[in-house]
Design a protein around this nucleic acid. Structure first.
Length: 644
RNA sequence: GCCAGCGUAGCUCAAUCGGCAGAGCGGCGCAUUCGUAAUGCGUAGGUUGGGGGUUCGAGUCCCUUCGCUGGCUCCA
C-alpha cells in the first residue's frame, strides 16, 4: 500500500501506512493546526488517511475553523448540560455548527431547560473551557457502539448509529463526556473562550412533527471578545429594523391581536406605500402583456373540490355557508382565473394568455407560525396565471424570471433561487411532474441563475421556482414563486383550439412576484430601515414654518407641491424648530423644507434631509423639479446630493 | 399545532417577601414665535390580556383561555 498526499505550502509526500493530518503537520513542522482540508473536505486532525489527495492545514484563525470550533462548542455545551442535569437524565440528539453559531438538541427526562438555566449552563461551559480538556477521537465497531448506546439509554444516538452504513463509527471524548460524532473537532476544549447561549426552543427529533420534541439550545462562539460583542450588537441593531417594530412606529400598519390575529390593518401611510407598489407593478404587467382581473373572494365549495384544493389544501381554508350552500373563502386565485378562461372559447392565437390580479386570499395558518406581516392569514398576492401551449412554457417562465429581476432591481436587494420538486402529497403522474421540472430547470439555466434544489417541496399541483429574500435577522422569506401546473387545466377541462381545429389542453403557470404584498412590504421596511425611497415614502416632504408669520408662505408651497401630486404636509405646530425637525426626522420623511424670513425674501426653501444634512437653500422651482424627477424615476437615490 | 418564555397607560419600562398600581416619552391644555434632533408648566390616561381559584389581601401564587416572542413543523 502506497499513496501520495500533496500538502499545500510544502510538496508531495508518499506514505506506506495510514497517517493523520496531525502527524503530517508534526513531521513537517507545522504547528497548532485545528483541522485539515483533504480533497476539499474538512477533516478532523486525528482521522487516518490512506488515499491520494490534496491537503491544506486549517489554523484557528482561518475562516474554515469557525465550523470546527463551533461544533466543539456544541459538545462543550452538551457536556455542561449533562453535568448539570445528570447523565441519566439527558438524552442527546444532534449538535451541529450552523451559520454564526451552533445548537444542540436534548431531551431532559422528567424535566426541562428554561431560558434561566442558560446562565447556569454558560457557567459550567466556562469551567470546561478552563479545564482545557484534551479531545480524543475514538473509532468503534458499530455493533459495540450500539451496545454502548443501549446501555446508556441514548435512544436518539442509537437511532443515528443504526442508520450509519459503515462498520466503524467515531466518537469524540473530552474528559468524562463522550459523544457519537463525525467531527471534526478542536484538539482541546480550551481554545475558544468567547461564546454566548442565545435561546432555547423546541425542535422535533429529525425535524418530523410525528416525533418527540426535543429542546434545542442555540449559541454562538467567536475567537475574540470583540467579534462576539460585534455579533451580539449586530443582532441588537437588526432588531431595530424589525418591521414588527418599525411598522407601527412609522404608522404603516397595526395588527389587532384580539380581534384579527394574523391580519394586518394598513393605516393611511401603509396604504400609500402599498398603492405605490401596486401602481409600479401594474405598469410593468401592462408592459409585459398581462390582463388584469378581479375575481370573487367567496366561491362555492364545489369549485374547490374540482380544483383539488379540497383534497390537498382543506386544512388551510376558511369555510362559510348560507342557504344550505357551502362556500370557501379563496386561498388562491387560480380557480377564479380558470372561470374567466372558460367564459369564452380560446384560440391558439390568444395564447399565451396572461391573467393578472391583486388577489386577496385567506389561508388558515397555525397560530405558532404567524409573524408580523411576513406570515399572515389574509394577504394580497400580485398573482397571475399564464395559460400557454407546452411549447411556450420555457419562454413564458423566462419572461417571468426577467420581470422578477426587473422588479427586484428597482429595490436593490439580494435573493437566492430554489427549485422545488414533487412532494409526497401531489396530484397527477410522475411523468408529468418530471416533464414540468425539466422545463423549469431549463428556463433557470437559460436565465443564467444559480439555484439550489429542494426535493419534495413543490406545490401539490406542480414543481416551482422560488426566490427568497433575507430579513433583518437573516431569515429567508419566499417572495416570488413560479409554479408549473399541468393538472388543474385537466381537472377543469379547459382547452384551446389548435391551428388544425382540435381541442387541446393549455399549460398553466401560477406566478407571483412580490409574492404577498404584505410580506414584500415587510421586507422593504427592514431593507430600508423605514427610510423608503422617495417614491414610496408615505410623506415625501414636510414644510416647517419657523414662526407663525411664515405659515402663509409655507401654505403656498404646500398647495403648489400637493397640486403636483407630491405627498406633502405642513407642520405649523406651536413647537420649537428643533422639536419639529427631530420629530420629522424620526418619521423618516425624505425632505423637510424650512421657511423663515430669508426664504420668503428670496422665494427659496431651506432643505434638510432625513439624515440630518442641511442642503442649504434652493429655489422652490428647482426643488420641485428635482423631487418630481426623483419620484418619476422611482430612484433609489436622492437627486439632491446625498444618499436617499 | 408543538417546546420554552412573556403579557402592567398609545410606546418604553418600574412596583422588595403576596400589602395604597408608578415614571419617562407621547396625548391634551396654557404660556413661549423660536434658524436645522427634544422650551417650560399643568393635566387626563389602568377591570395589570380574559375567566376562575388560593388568601384577610393577588400585577405578584395556582388553573384555564386568548395573544405575543424565539425556534420546530408548515408556508406567500
Amino acid at each position: 500500500m502506497s499513496f501520495k498526499i500533496s500538502v499545500k505550502d510544502y510538496g508531495v509526500l508518499s506514505f506506506e501506512e495510514p497517517i493523520t493530518p496531525y502527524n503530517i503537520s508534526r513531521t513537517l513542522g507545522f504547528k497548532d493546526i485545528v483541522s485539515a482540508k483533504f480533497n476539499n473536505r474538512l477533516l478532523d486532525i486525528r482521522t487516518p488517511i490512506e488515499e491520494d489527495g490534496e491537503m491544506s492545514f486549517v489554523y484557528l484563525q482561518d475562516s474554515e475553523a469557525a465550523e470546527v470550533y463551533r461544533h466543539t462548542m456544541a459538545h462543550i455545551m452538551a457536556q455542561a448540560v449533562i453535568r448539570i442535569y445528570g447523565k441519566e437524565n439527558v438524552r442527546l440528539g444532534i449538535g451541529p455548527a450552523i451559520e454564526n453559531g451552533f445548537y444542540y438538541d436534548f431531551e431532559i427526562v422528567n424535566g426541562k431547560i428554561t431560558e434561566e438555566d442558560l446562565q447556569l449552563i454558560e457557567k459550567e461551559m466556562n469551567k470546561i473551557v478552563q479545564e482545557n480538556l484534551h479531545i480524543e477521537r475514538i473509532e468503534m465497531i458499530k455493533e459495540k457502539a450500539i451496545e454502548l448506546m443501549k446501555k446508556e439509554n441514548q435512544v436518539y444516538k442509537l437511532e443515528l448509529i443504526e442508520n450509519i452504513e459503515d462498520d466503524v463509527v467515531t466518537f469524540f471524548k473530552q474528559g468524562e463526556f463522550t459523544d457519537l460524532c463525525r467531527g471534526p473537532h478542536l484538539p482541546s476544549t480550551g481554545l475558544v473562550k468567547h461564546f454566548k447561549l442565545l435561546s432555547v426552543s423546541g425542535a422535533y427529533w429529525r425535524g418530523d412533527e410525528r416525533n418527540p420534541m426535543l429542546q434545542r439550545i442555540y449559541g454562538t462562539a467567536f475567537l475574540c471578545k470583540e467579534d462576539l460583542e460585534n455579533y451580539l450588537n449586530s443582532i441588537q441593531e437588526a432588531k431595530k429594523r424589525d418591521h414588527r417594530k418599525l411598522g407601527p412606529a412609522l404608522d404603516l400598519f397595526v395588527i389587532d391581536t384580539e380581534f384579527a390575529p394574523g391580519m394586518a390593518f394598513f393605516t393611511a401611510n401603509g396604504t400609500t406605500v402599498l398603492n405605490e407598489l401596486m401602481r409600479f407593478s401594474r405598469e410593468l404587467h401592462t408592459e409585459s402583456g398581462y390582463k388584469e382581473l378581479m375575481t370573487p373572494l367567496v366561491m362555492s365549495e364545489t369549485l374547490w373540490r374540482i380544483s383539488g384544493h379540497w383534497d390537498h389544501y382543506k386544512e388551510n381554508m376558511y369555510f362559510t355557508s348560507k342557504e344550505e350552500q357551502s362556500y370557501a373563502i379563496k386561498p388562491m386565485n387560480c380557480p377564479g382565473h380558470i372561470i374567466v378562461y372558460k367564459s369564452k372559447p380560446v384560440s391558439y392565437r390568444d395564447l399565451p394568455l396572461r391573467y393578472f390580479e391583486f388577489g386577496r386570499v385567506h389561508r388558515y395558518e397555525r397560530s405558532g407560525v404567524l409573524h408580523g406581516i411576513f406570515r399572515v392569514r389574509g394577504f394580497i398576492q400580485d398573482d397571475a396565471h399564464i395559460f400557454c401551449t407546452p411549447e411556450q412554457v420555457k419562454q413564458e417562465v423566462m419572461g417571468v424570471i426577467n420581470l422578477t429581476k426587473r422588479i427586484y432591481s428597482q429595490f436593490g436587494f439580494d435573493y437566492s433561487v430554489e427549485l422545488s420538486t414533487m412532494p409526497e402529497d401531489h396530484m397527477g403522474d410522475e411523468i408529468i411532474w418530471e416533464r414540468a421540472t425539466r422545463a423549469l430547470k431549463s428556463a433557470l439555466e437559460s436565465a443564467n441563475l444559480s439555484y439550489t434544489v429542494n426535493e419534495g417541496e413543490g406545490a401539490f399541483y406542480g414543481p416551482k421556482i422560488d426566490f427568497h429574500i433575507k430579513d433583518s435577522l437573516g431569515r429567508m422569506w419566499q417572495c416570488t414563486t413560479i409554479q408549473l401546473d399541468f393538472l388543474m387545466p385537466e381537472r377543469f377541462n379547459i382547452v384551446y383550439t389548435t391551428p388544425s381545429g382540435e381541442q387541446q389542453q393549455p399549460v398553466m403557470i401560477h406566478r407571483a412576484i412580490y409574492g404577498s404584498l404584505e410580506r414584500f412590504f415587510g421586507i422593504l421596511i427592514e431593507h430600508f430601515a423605514g427610510a423608503f425611497p422617495t417614491w414610496l415614502s408615505p410623506v415625501q416632504v414636510a414644510v416647517v414654518p419657523i414662526a407663525d408669520r411664515h405659515i402663509e408662505y409655507a401654505k403656498g408651497i404646500h398647495n403648489k407641491l400637493q397640486a403636483e401630486k407630491i405627498r406633502i404636509e405642513i407642520d405649523a405646530r406651536r413647537e420649537t424648530l428643533g422639536y419639529k425637525l427631530r420629530d420629522l426626522q424620526i418619521r423618516k420623511i425624505p425632505y423637510v423644507l424650512i421657511v423663515g424670513d430669508k426664504e420668503i425674501q428670496n422665494r427659496t426653501v431651506s432643505i434638510r434631509t432625513r439624515h440630518g444634512t442641511n442642503l442649504g437653500s434652493m429655489k422652490l422651482e428647482d426643488f420641485e423639479n428635482a423631487i418630481r424627477k426623483e419620484i418619476e424615476q422611482r430612484s433609489l437615490k436622492t437627486l439632491l446630493g446625498e444618499e436617499a
